[in-house]
Amino acid sequence: MRRRSSSSNASRRSSTVRRRSENLRFDEFGFAVTKRKDRKLHHRCHEYSYPQLGSVRVKELCELLSYWNGASFICRSQIERFIRMGVPPSLRGQVWKCLLGIDSLRETSDFNYQNCLSEVRGPLVDLGVSEYGILSAIATLSETQNDLGLNQQQQQSSSCPEPRYSVDDITLFRQIALDLQRSFPTHRSLMGESPEAIEGQAKLFRVLIAYAKYSPQESVGVLSVHFVTPWFLTLFSSLPCWDSVLAVWDLIILHGLSAVFRTALTIIELLEPRLMELSDEAAVLPLLLRVPVDV
C-alpha cells in the first residue's frame, strides 16, 4: 500500500512539473522566463542588449562570408570587426562554420566523433553508467571512484590488468554528471522530466565526456582535472546573460585559448571592487562562480 502511495505521489509530482513547464514562457535563447523576484535565484537575465547591425552591415557580413578565406589576414581582420560590432544570431552559425573551417576539416580530418564516443561509453556501460539516468550515474561513479582509490596501490603492486579508466577519469566524469544537475536548470531542452529534457541531458553528457577524454591537453602531460573549472570547462556558459556568452564564444572561436584567459581576466577585473571588499575567503568563490547580472 505504501509503495503504491509513493508511486502515485511521484506520478503526481511529475505531472505537476510537466504542467508548470507547459505554462512557462521562454526567451529567444530557450530559457524559461521566470518572475522578476525569482531571477536572482535562477541566476538568469532575460534582458538582452546585444548590438543590432543595420541592413547595410548585415549585407557586408554576408558578402564576407560568401568569399571567406580563413588563411587571409584581411578576412580575419574584417570578421573581428563584425564580431566586435555584434554578430546577428541568424548569422552566428555561418560565422562559426567559417572560423572553424568546418568544410575543410570534414575533408581532411580523420577524427570520428562516433568512434570516440563508443570508446568512452563502452567502459561506462560496463560500469552500469547511462547518460539517460544522471542521478544513478552520479551514484555509480562515486562508488567506482571510491573503489579505485582504495584499490589503486594494490593494483599497482599486483599483476592485475589496469582498469580501462583511471581515478582521474572517473573523478572528471562524476564532476560532469554533477554539473549537469546544476547547468541550465531553466533551459527548455534540459529542464523537467520530459523526453526532450532527458535526451538533452544525455547529449550534453556525451559531448562533455568525449571532450574531456580526448582533450588535446592530455598529450602534453596536463591532466584535465587540473584545469576543469566552471569557467573553463563550459567556456563561460555559466554567465547569467546568454548574449554575453555567445559574444565570448565568438572571440574564443576567432582567437582560441588566449581569448579564454582574456575573458577570465576581464571578469576578475570587473569584479575587483567587490572582491576587494570581501574579507571572508568563503564569500569570494560564490561571487566568482555566480557572476552578478549587473557586472
Rank of each mutant, 00 (worst) to 15 (best):
V120I: 12
Q145D: 12
C98G: 01
S158W: 06
M191T: 09
S166F: 14
R106A: 11
Y165P: 01
Q217Y: 03
N115G: 12
E119F: 15
L127E: 05
R182G: 02
K203L: 10
S224T: 11
A177H: 00
C116A: 14
V95G: 00
R206Y: 01
D147H: 08
I170V: 15
Q155C: 14
S130C: 07
R121K: 10
L178W: 05
S136H: 07
G192P: 05
L105H: 04
E218N: 14
T108I: 05
L148N: 15
S215K: 01
S130E: 04
Y165T: 13
I209L: 10
C98Y: 01
F173V: 05
V125F: 05
P161E: 10
P230H: 08
V120F: 03
K97W: 02
V125H: 05
V222H: 13
V225I: 12
S219D: 13
P163K: 05
T108C: 04
P216H: 03
R206F: 04
Q145F: 10
L204E: 01
N112C: 15
A212N: 01
K213T: 12
P216F: 04
L141F: 07
Q154G: 11
T186V: 08
L223D: 08
E119I: 15
I198C: 03
D179S: 07
N115V: 15
V228N: 10
S104A: 12
S142L: 09
G192R: 00
A212W: 02
Y132M: 10
C116V: 14
L135F: 05
G133I: 09
S194A: 06
A210C: 11
L178E: 13
T144F: 14
D147Y: 10
G101D: 09
S104G: 08
T140E: 03
F184G: 00
P195N: 00
S166N: 09
S159T: 08
S159Y: 08
F111A: 15
Y132D: 05
S219V: 14
I209M: 06
L223K: 07
Q181H: 10
L190S: 07
S215D: 13
S224A: 09
L233M: 02
E196T: 15
A139T: 10
L135T: 09
F232P: 01
S109I: 13
E196W: 05
Q217A: 10
L190C: 03
P195I: 04
T140V: 14
L105A: 12
G149V: 03
I209C: 11
G200T: 14
E143G: 15
L150N: 09
N151M: 11
A177R: 00
L150I: 09
Q156G: 04
F111P: 12
A212K: 01
G122K: 13
L172R: 00
G128Y: 04
Q217H: 14
I198S: 04
T144P: 03
G101N: 02
L178T: 07
Y214H: 09
F227N: 00
S130I: 03
L148I: 12
P216Y: 05
H226K: 07
Q154A: 11
V120E: 04
S104I: 12
P123V: 13
M191G: 00
V220N: 01
G192Y: 00
V125L: 06
S183T: 04
V125N: 06
D110C: 09
K213M: 11
Q181A: 03
Q175M: 12
V207P: 05
